[in-house]
Simulated scan of single mutants.
Amino acid sequence: MNKLKIAGIISVLIIAVMIASQIYLAKSSQCMAKSIAAVQSSYKQSGNSPATQKKMRQFFSLWQKNSRILPTILKHSELDIVNESVAKLPAYLKDDQPSDFDAECDMLKMQLIHLWNVEKINWENIL
């Protein structure tokens, strides 16, 4: 009976951790996608302005915070692709390359949403 209780407690803990990681991943990927959309919008409106720089720093801060936690949930290869896109943004912004910056922002938003889609619990990911 004692072993059954321990197995039940462990099962509940595993499910709780899975649910918490799903919630965290959903919220963080959506928040980062919205943040990069704000950077992109600011760039379209005012170019490489102080407002755009501020939004970019906010996004980088958010990315740095989440990039410490996400490797415990996701495959590193998925994060490497996002890291590459994040690394390209400052160069495009500095060199004032609007089409490249816009394209990289779109790519980054798609990759951030993909992080959630590849890990969420649904039949497609289970089967």
Score class of each variant (00 low, 15 high):
residue 105 C to I: 01
residue 60 F to V: 03
residue 89 L to Y: 06
residue 107 M to K: 13
residue 81 I to Y: 08
residue 88 K to F: 03
residue 50 P to C: 09
residue 108 L to V: 02
residue 103 A to Q: 15
residue 53 Q to I: 10
residue 100 D to C: 03
residue 102 D to G: 10
residue 98 P to D: 13
residue 84 E to M: 07
residue 94 K to M: 06
residue 98 P to F: 11
residue 48 N to H: 13
residue 54 K to A: 15
residue 69 I to E: 06
residue 76 H to T: 06
residue 54 K to F: 08
residue 108 L to A: 03
residue 91 A to E: 10
residue 89 L to M: 12
residue 49 S to N: 06
residue 103 A to T: 13
residue 108 L to Y: 05
residue 62 L to H: 06
residue 103 A to K: 15
residue 65 K to P: 00
residue 66 N to L: 01
residue 95 D to S: 13
residue 64 Q to L: 05
residue 52 T to I: 05
residue 68 R to H: 10
residue 52 T to V: 06
residue 65 K to N: 02
residue 84 E to C: 03
residue 71 P to D: 03
residue 82 V to N: 08
residue 95 D to W: 03
residue 88 K to V: 00
residue 48 N to E: 05
residue 87 A to S: 15
residue 77 S to Y: 06
residue 73 I to R: 08
residue 55 K to N: 09
residue 104 E to W: 01
residue 48 N to T: 04
residue 96 D to G: 02
residue 71 P to H: 10
residue 56 M to Q: 12
residue 80 D to E: 14
residue 60 F to A: 05
residue 72 T to D: 04
residue 101 F to N: 13
residue 101 F to S: 12
residue 81 I to S: 10
residue 83 N to P: 00
residue 66 N to Q: 11
residue 81 I to L: 12
residue 64 Q to P: 00
residue 94 K to I: 03
residue 98 P to W: 11
residue 81 I to T: 15
residue 89 L to F: 05
residue 62 L to I: 00
residue 103 A to D: 14
residue 76 H to I: 05
residue 69 I to Q: 10
residue 54 K to T: 08
residue 78 E to L: 04
residue 82 V to K: 09
residue 80 D to G: 09
residue 50 P to Y: 04
residue 102 D to H: 11
residue 94 K to P: 00
residue 101 F to D: 08
residue 82 V to S: 09
residue 54 K to V: 02
residue 85 S to I: 00
residue 92 Y to M: 09
residue 95 D to L: 14
residue 99 S to A: 15
residue 51 A to R: 11
residue 107 M to V: 00
residue 97 Q to F: 01
residue 99 S to E: 14
residue 61 S to W: 02
residue 69 I to A: 09
residue 73 I to C: 08
residue 68 R to N: 08
residue 77 S to I: 02
residue 88 K to E: 13
residue 92 Y to W: 05
residue 105 C to A: 15
residue 86 V to H: 07
residue 99 S to K: 15
residue 107 M to Q: 14
residue 84 E to S: 08
residue 106 D to R: 12
residue 83 N to D: 13
residue 105 C to Q: 06
residue 55 K to F: 06
residue 55 K to M: 09
residue 97 Q to W: 01
residue 55 K to A: 08
residue 62 L to A: 10
residue 78 E to Q: 10
residue 96 D to S: 14
residue 101 F to G: 11
residue 53 Q to M: 11
residue 54 K to N: 07
residue 75 K to F: 06
residue 73 I to G: 05
residue 48 N to P: 00
residue 75 K to N: 09
residue 107 M to N: 14
residue 76 H to R: 11
residue 90 P to F: 12
residue 103 A to W: 03
residue 85 S to G: 15
residue 63 W to K: 05
residue 67 S to I: 01
residue 101 F to I: 03
